[in-house]
């Protein structure tokens, strides 16, 4: 036990509160698990130079998305790439109410708690958030992460006739699972597509032999 170990650093209250949520034991009963499916829109792909412009997240529990338990934040960033704005349609002048990066992180940590995080190409979104946390003097996220692009590959049948691609885009998943792409390229819209795809993928994985929640979360 590390009861007597002194913390190296004094983190702010919101972080310690977040940290405390991980002290209780996690359940491996699938319907009990709260998954938070999220997506970030950013100014680019450089973890150090680029910034998060918006975060959208939905909670999935027992195959159900409760809309009242969703998260959408638009961040105020001085730093802007004109190019990226074209893709995501996020304009500085837009009427969306913007909050500071720190405020967004505080709200986001409060929202996610100890949930299992899910994202498409999760590594990217995770790093973006972690870099933002680090900039404000916080350590990395403590949550478990699942990546729908990896999980999807596990659902494919093994056949010599079907070459498995290295990457499957969110667009490809939306096509395969017949999900509307109307709100593509907004953080919450992409999170929604990912959430529906995630539920469908999970269903496919469950029917495979030797499926266990524990293994899934490893």
């Amino acid at each position: 036990m590390d009861l007597f170990k002194k913390r190296k650093k004094n983190y702010p209250d919101f972080w310690t509160e977040y940290e405390q949520k991980f002290e209780k034991k996690i359940s491996y009963d699938l319907p009990d698990i709260r998954f938070v499916v999220f997506d970030t829109e950013t100014t680019g792909f450089d973890y150090d130079a680029d910034r998060v412009l918006s975060i959208g997240a939905l909670s999935v529990q027992n195959n159900s998305i409760n809309i009242s338990d969703s998260f959408e934040a638009f961040l105020y960033q001085h730093f802007y790439h004109a190019k990226n704005i074209e893709i995501h349609g996020i304009l500085q002048e837009e009427r969306q109410e913007r909050i500071t990066e720190l405020e967004a992180l505080i709200q986001f940590l409060e929202y996610i708690g100890d949930s299992v995080m899910v994202a498409h190409h999760a590594g990217f979104d995770r790093n973006m958030i972690n870099h933002a946390l680090n900039r404000h003097g916080m350590p990395n996220l403590l949550n478990k992460f699942l990546d729908t692009s990896v999980l999807y590959k596990r659902t494919l049948i093994k056949s010599p006739l079907l070459p498995v691609k290295a990457q499957y885009s969110l667009d490809e998943l939306a096509e395969k699972f017949d999900i509307s792409k109307k709100d593509r390229h907004t953080a919450l819209g992409d999170a929604y597509i990912t959430a529906i795809a995630f539920m469908k993928i999970l269903q496919k994985l469950k029917t495979k032999k030797k499926f266990s929640t524990k293994k899934l979360l490893k």
Partner: peptide, 10 residues
């Protein structure tokens, strides 16, 4: 909560 998804549902 009003957001992109609730607007789509409506």
């Amino acid at each position: 909560m009003k957001n992109t998804i609730s607007a789509r549902v409506a």
